[in-house]
Amino acid sequence: MKFTKILIANRGEISLRIMRSAREMGIKTVAVYSEADRNALHVRYADEAILIGPAPSQQSYLVIDKIIDAALKTGAQAIHPGYGFLSENPAFARAVKEKGLVLIGPSPESMEIMGSKLAAKAAAKKYDIPLVPGTDYAISDVAEARKVAKEVGFPILIKASAGGGGKGMRIVEHEDQFDEMLERAVSEATSSFGDGSVFIERYVGSPRHIEIQVLGDQQGNIVYLFERECSIQRRHQKVIEEAPSSVLTPAIREEMGKCAVLVAKAANYVGAGTVEFLLDENKNFYFLEMNTRLQVEHHRN
């Protein structure tokens, strides 16, 4: 199916970037905008623009019905979600499909698999994709935990399964500290989250964050478009990225690329996506997660 008109459910630079590509392809564009964005550039650039509500995104860019109504009203055949907002929302992807429109991106099922950390890891495991060594189930028995820790190898990280934001996390350097640290982690997890179960993972001391750009078509073909080095971060968000990474060898690069393709295959992935890996100081890489959308930094590749 060749689209003649698409709606871009986003704002700012990404909205413009998609519209420019569409214009080069001879496709008409529809912008949506909030009251705060009346004079925004994406509104001026689009062939048509539809006001979808007040400034807060919960009342405009995040309202599924308003976006779909705008597409139906203007006769757009497809919706490009960009990044952020509704781009990784399976309910949105499903609603778009139900109205007979096409979402330019992955299926709701792909979003669901990769949106759940446990489901994503289980999918990756099926293809023997390397994961940070450790447990993918919660442990509350001390003897079992010690056995797992020994297998994984010290230093290890004890993580509260209900935790987040660094709470309930303990680094254990040596085996002889293990019992005491586990006890503390369990009691911290119990008092903070009401759930004392923990995961055990190998502690990666000097991690680099490297991700692979993938693209999938609707015939099941998936390719990788090499890596982005994203280790320079503030508040867990990337600020400087480079490609190629200065530390990957051609052999590791190819191996990571193949793994990224397998991860995408495990989710029957269609469209542009990113597979994130952690690289340790010995250049072992481990699958972290997959972003099921066009990424901010896609041009780097």
Partner: peptide, 20 residues
């Protein structure tokens, strides 16, 4: 790649990215 021109306000409601 950006979404702004001189004279525009960066709205408080959204991600504060100006440009790539």
């Amino acid at each position: 790649d950006d979404g702004f021109e001189e004279g525009m306000d960066i709205p408080i409601y959204y991600d504060p990215m100006i440009a790539k």
